[in-house]
């Protein structure tokens, strides 16, 4: 990945946040309960946005769009959707 200053050319460079801080689109926020979570990584594989950390099962709220696929697919029910303040 290149820095932003180098990127002002007619071509684009791969970089996070190409659509802006997409976390602001979110209506519901997924919250992981580490006590229930079995670290099966199902949420990680289905996340369309690649915001879930594979090892720790933490969510990058800067880019999470709050689609809720992780909460629906979680087999233990460790992810709950809470209304954004």
């Amino acid at each position: 990945m290149k820095s932003v200053t180098k990127a002002y050319r007619p071509i684009s460079w791969p970089m996070k946040g190409a659509g802006g801080d997409t976390g602001s689109w979110r209506v519901h926020r997924p919250v992981v309960d580490p006590k229930i979570c079995s670290k099966c990584q199902i949420c990680w594989v289905y996340c369309p946005e690649a915001v879930i950390d594979r090892k720790e099962i933490t969510i990058d709220y800067r880019y999470c769009k709050g689609c809720g696929v992780c909460a629906t697919e979680c087999p233990t029910g460790a992810i709950s959707m809470e209304k954004e303040e």
Binding site: A18, T22, E49, C67
Partner: peptide, 29 residues
């Protein structure tokens, strides 16, 4: 199995797709 999939991410966070987009979901795999 899911745990055997490699770590590499080719779809970067914060792209312009709708939330829950199946196209980016598939493209990640």
């Amino acid at each position: 199995s899911i745990k055997q999939l490699p770590d590499i991410e080719q779809v970067l966070s914060g792209n312009g797709a709708c939330g829950g987009c199946p196209a980016t979901m598939a493209l990640r795999i």
